[in-house]
């Protein structure tokens, strides 16, 4: 088991190296000089030279890459050009908001997708199944920011059932925290819930057709036990992969969702970094998202290996 974890971590390392290289190269891909872009129009040559020095652009690329990588290995992501704050601190301050949002969204995905997916698979090819499939197709087609706007207009501005904007930390109380996260969490969750429902239905339909399920039915095992212990457990691996993939989608969507709901999270930080051409902060945000996504892939692989003894020994 530990060997399996180690192997998967090793597989993740080259991808992380490539991503750090890509994010390092971002600044060199800037059309024209990044320092001139930052200094703005009409800046004095001295100001541009000063910025070039701050960015390290006066040094050769290999030296800069060496400094950048050795900084990263020591956990130093650089310093924001605007706030003067370290990139690590800026991201650390924004992450609790986004982590809360994604946790709530994932809980909602499970609450919505597991019952619906199971229901659709058990009532396969009935009207219930078709209704669930059609709803899923519908939500898969809607961009999450449209969902967010509909939710804001209907539930926050019209009915005023939930606060429309803002974020309150967990320290203010669980209820307050949650009430600010329900609408953005739902907006983030619906597309993923539709995807997971669809995958769960497909995987469970395949499993329920297997001979060993028929044998257990014939033995007279209670249907719920068959479904829970044998159906879901065997349907889980492909569904888990899809659930893991949702993190990348959600992280991207938080940029929009946090904008709609005025939340000071990681997405908002990324957007501000982009609007201000804050290169070190942009690089930090890119790297942190990559680490989160790659880390999730590793965790999903390990959990799958735990569920499926056959995968444990395979590389």
């Amino acid at each position: 088991m530990i060997g399996a974890v180690g192997r998967r971590l090793l597989l993740a390392i080259p991808i992380l190296v490539v991503v750090s290289l890509l994010s390092f190269l971002l600044i060199d891909l800037t059309p024209g000089s990044p320092a001139e872009l930052l200094a703005g129009e009409g800046a004095t040559p001295e100001r541009v030279a000063e910025l070039e020095q701050t960015l390290g652009l006066d040094q050769p690329i290999w030296q800069r890459f060496g400094d950048y990588m050795s900084g990263l290995l020591q956990g130093d992501f650089g310093t924001s050009l605007f706030s003067g704050q370290s990139v690590g601190d800026a991201i650390g301050a924004a992450l609790p908001v986004t982590v809360s949002l994604i946790v709530v969204a994932y809980v909602l995905v499970f609450v919505i997708a597991i019952p619906l997916g199971v229901l659709a698979a058990v009532r396969r090819d009935t009207r219930t199944d078709r209704a669930i499939s059609a709803t899923c197709s519908f939500f898969l087609g809607i961009p999450s920011f449209v969902v967010a706007l509909v939710l804001v207009i209907l539930l926050a501005l019209t009915v005023e059932a939930f606060p429309a904007t803002g974020y309150k930390p967990l320290a203010d109380g669980f209820g307050v925290w949650l009430s600010h996260l329900i609408l953005p969490g739902l907006a983030l969750a619906l597309t993923s819930a539709a995807e997971v429902t669809r995958q769960l239905r497909g995987a469970l339909v395949d499993v329920l057709e297997q001979d060993y399920i028929r044998t257990q039915r014939a033995k007279g095992l209670p249907p719920l036990l068959i479904l829970g212990k044998h159906g879901l457990k065997n349907a889980a691996p492909p569904v888990l992969t899809v659930i893991g993939l949702q993190l990348a989608r959600m992280l991207g969507s938080t940029v929009i969702i946090e904008q709609v709901f005025a939340m000071p999270g990681f997405g908002a930080l990324t957007l501000n970094a982009v609007l201000q051409h804050d290169f070190p902060l942009i690089q930090g945000c890119v790297l942190v998202s990559a680490i989160a996504v790659i880390g999730t892939t590793v965790v999903v692989d390990v959990v799958e290996a735990g569920l499926n003894p056959r995968l444990r020994s395979a590389a």
């Binding site: 991808i15 990348a248 991207g252 890119v286 998202s289 892939t297």
Partner: peptide, 10 residues
């Protein structure tokens, strides 16, 4: 391995 929107933003 990067969220599409984050990469596009960067």
């Amino acid at each position: 391995s990067l969220p599409g929107l984050v990469l596009a933003l960067a």
